[in-house]
Amino acid sequence: MGPIRYIGAFTLNKLKRLGRMFFFLFEAFLYSIIPPIKLGLWVRQIRFIGAESLSVILLTGTFSGMVLGFQGYYSLSRFGSEAFLGPAVGLSLIKEIGPVISALMVTGRAGSAITAEIGIMRISEQIDAIELMGLNPFRYLVVPRLLAALVSVPLLTSIFDVVGILGGYLIGVKLLGVGSGTYFGEMANYVDLKDVTEGLLKSISFAVIIVWVSCFKGYYTGIYTGFGAEGVSKATTQAVVMASVLILLWDYVMTSLLFS
């Protein structure tokens, strides 16, 4: 009986946790569409998740584009098709690199802070205090962050794409000698609206993943990780790892779905 019972309990436990996690997401969406929305908190979170991530995105976007410029030129010149550097850089950035790296950067910068902040509110009983006033903690903690990320992450991603394309231009055109007209002309020929939409859909879903995971881990700090400062730091680590893994997995799922 021993091991079977153990496996049973383990499985049930995991399922319960998974169920709780999906219910959390459901509630987050539910209260995002039922007013009142706390506009002040929303704006504050756009500033935190969006505006304050800008420098990181500018930096990583430029360098990613520059690397793509080198690598793309190197691969394409083997087939004598350096002329297609523009579309190669543009498509990789818009469809793949832009959404994924932006989301990972936001996870590291804002996701971890979200978990820590909500986790501290949990262990210092601030969340219980909101509940005891007869108010809904989701409206104060989760909804403003979800709505802010849905605005900020796609915008950050587009900025990443733009500076990335300019980084590729810097390397391909200024350093390696591809024609400026060729770089942008071919890019305009080969990048469709469909590609842009694909990147946008990805970044929207990544925004949901980031907020979902980091808020959930913060909200349930203590229940899964133990109380105290150690509980918060564990929850934060778990949130960053889990959100990053989910982003990459979901990226695969979306790519394969959109491919067919």
């Binding site: 210092s124 009983e125 219980d128 205090a129 005891l132 006033m133």
Partner: peptide
């Protein structure tokens, strides 16, 4: 529960003020 809680005032041991 919300209806019942309207009647309550609760002082948490640590205060639980919003940071």
């Amino acid at each position: 529960l919300e209806l019942v809680r309207k009647e309550f005032g609760f002082l948490f041991q640590g205060g639980a003020l919003f940071d």
